[in-house]
Design a protein around this nucleic acid. Structure first.
Lengths: 207, 207, 207, 207
DNA sequence: CATGAATGAGGCTTCATTCAT
DNA sequence: GATGAATGAAGCCTCATTCAT
């Protein structure tokens, strides 16, 4: 019987693993469950991944790449005032994640794994990289606004960007916890307050 | 009469567990390690906690209570303008956590557990409760400022509060990831921008 | 506070243990449960018994002695024809056990322990002794009937006695299994058939 | 394709378990001992049985089925007078068990388990079923004899059957306890007395 | 390449027993 | 004597991984 070679099998497994890990968490997830979800035999997993942990990392990288690309696309596409671009990015981040809030649990899992696993370094680095990349984008955006006079010139762009990124992170977390929470609304309201603050000329120095 | 019951033993175990769980993560931590860290026998753990998971939840509650009480104290103590009180709260939150950033990993563990464990409901509820409590405090603070005319009257206090809380959360996370990151500085810079935005009369409506 | 010395405490513990072992079986019973049932501290058990197994054996001996004395009393009391005495013994055995069928489980436990425990020899010997004693009594009774001409003279009294004892054993077992089963009725009906057989002159030799 | 599933492995494990449980008792037996006796890994046991207890129940059912089938075969095979058939059944029961008296301990274990284990319902039901089935057979045999006039017509067939079954049970028990005891002889002698009693016309009513 | 039967290291937990009070 | 807090040996079971087919 000729076996149809399936070059997508790896992807198939990663996707199944994403579902399973998101649903039950890494520790509680069983390799056999991933295999079943992927519609392959248990042994097949090990044809493509050295170990469960390796598979986990593959899921992680897949997710990071996915998120990353969405943001990049948004940044590249939008034009207009710095404020408008910030609004667009904010909306892009939140809406990119909203439909897959169920996978948000995975992010927690990744953090958690970053504490524990021999992979911790890889995870942490990847996370930092992602954060740094994103922060750079936001920082640049803010500095752009400052350069054009749209924003006040005494803003610490880097720190503000850091905080802002964290805000989105946390809004999504709250949405995951509470299905009634409206992260997009909160994000928008918050961004407006922020933009307002950014535009003002006088910023009181932190004591 | 039997050996005198030691009322500190439970606390002693919780503290040891906090260390161990923070260091290696819940899944990787071994009950015997906790026992050794606490200087008790393995069986003793089970005199005080029904299971490893139960112990984990105790660690969680201990941390929540700890954080909660610090914030409450700050709120009760500080007086002055709404802005000053917000600054004080921000500093309190960040500085309360900074010295135990090493335990921040635990928060990740908790999130993770909230997804996975049979305790998930208890975790989620506790989390939401803590978040709600804190959000209520910040919301009240903002509304206070609006009532006195210190802040603009067209702010969505609740949403802003949600976002702000998340911001602190995430700043600490970044600090945990990157020892060079300065969460207090970022928090302060961000709060100033925010306060500036809050004080302005005209806030553009989100589209 | 003067402690009232309780010389019956040992008995108290044996009785509690009887209840607990009968209810849950030896293996499933916990020493603490016996202690609680006896209204003493866990450590107190070890003041009177070397180990859980030792306590178990004490329960066993207590039961054997109890049963033994009841039968002996019956035998000594009843007079009349051999048939009537057999009827009386049959009724005595069954009715002695009926009210404590709940403890019948204990007999099973004892058998079971006889297989396993380091005490196996003691158990087996005690059992055999009890069986032998009882068998001797029944054998004598049958031989008595044969001597007086009441029973046929070609009966194997010893073997018949063995079987008869086993019958009662097993009837009680069935009663324990099935609360609707009437061991007394079955015993009586069976004894009559048997007596009828015993009285007849012609017994066909087993092939 | 994976290693070819071995349809005998389950049987192999049940047989090993029968040996081990009979030898040391259920509680004292270790799963690893069964595994070693079966020549498989510890984990393999759990491929075929949910738990140690489950395995125990499988051993039980195996034994019951085995006994059952031997009796059934005997019943179906033998013809002749009711008395002859009863003799044949008696011999069949005793000789079926004699060669595996070493496993008789298991029956004790089963009774014990029926008291204790979460499986108690299943055990008890199975026991009762086996007893009921066997009793039905013997009852029918007695009634047959009554119908043909071979036995007296005032016999309580059901009760007599109950007692008779118990007798065999208990004879085997005595044989297990005492290697010198001759259960087949006792059974035969007893059956003859009994048959003699059954054949007589006048049976005194139990008071 | 794919599979899933087999494995065994290692975890959590129980509970009889000890011994300080 | 009495107690019950503390202990740790030991068992059942899970599940990632291997490898014969």
């Amino acid at each position: 019987m000729a076996r149809k070679p399936d070059p997508d099998k790896k992807r198939q497994i990663v996707e199944a693993a994403t579902q399973v890990f998101a649903g039950k968490g890494y520790a509680a997830a069983r390799v056999i469950e991933v295999a079943e979800a992927a519609g392959v035999g248990k042994g097949t997993i090990y044809e493509y991944f050295r170990s469960k942990e390796d598979l986990f990392f593959a899921v992680f990288e897949d997710m990071m790449a996915d998120t990353d690309s969405r943001i990049s696309v948004t940044i590249a596409t939008v034009s207009g005032s710095a404020a408008d671009r910030l609004r667009a990015v904010a909306d892009a981040v939140v809406t990119a994640w909203l439909p897959k809030l169920d996978r948000y649990a995975l992010v927690m899992e990744f953090w958690s794994a970053a504490t524990v696993s021999p992979l911790r370094r890889r995870f942490k680095e990847s996370f930092q990289q992602a954060y740094d990349g994103f922060r750079r984008v936001i920082t640049a955006l803010l500095q752009d606004g400052m350069a054009t006079g749209e924003f006040a010139d005494d803003i610490d762009a880097h720190k503000t960007a850091s905080a802002l990124i964290g805000t989105w992170d946390a809004l999504l977390l709250q949405a995951w916890l509470d299905p009634d929470f409206d992260p997009l609304g909160a994000s928008r309201a918050f961004v407006e307050v922020l933009l307002n603050g950014l535009r003002s000329k006088k910023i009181k120095e932190p004591s």
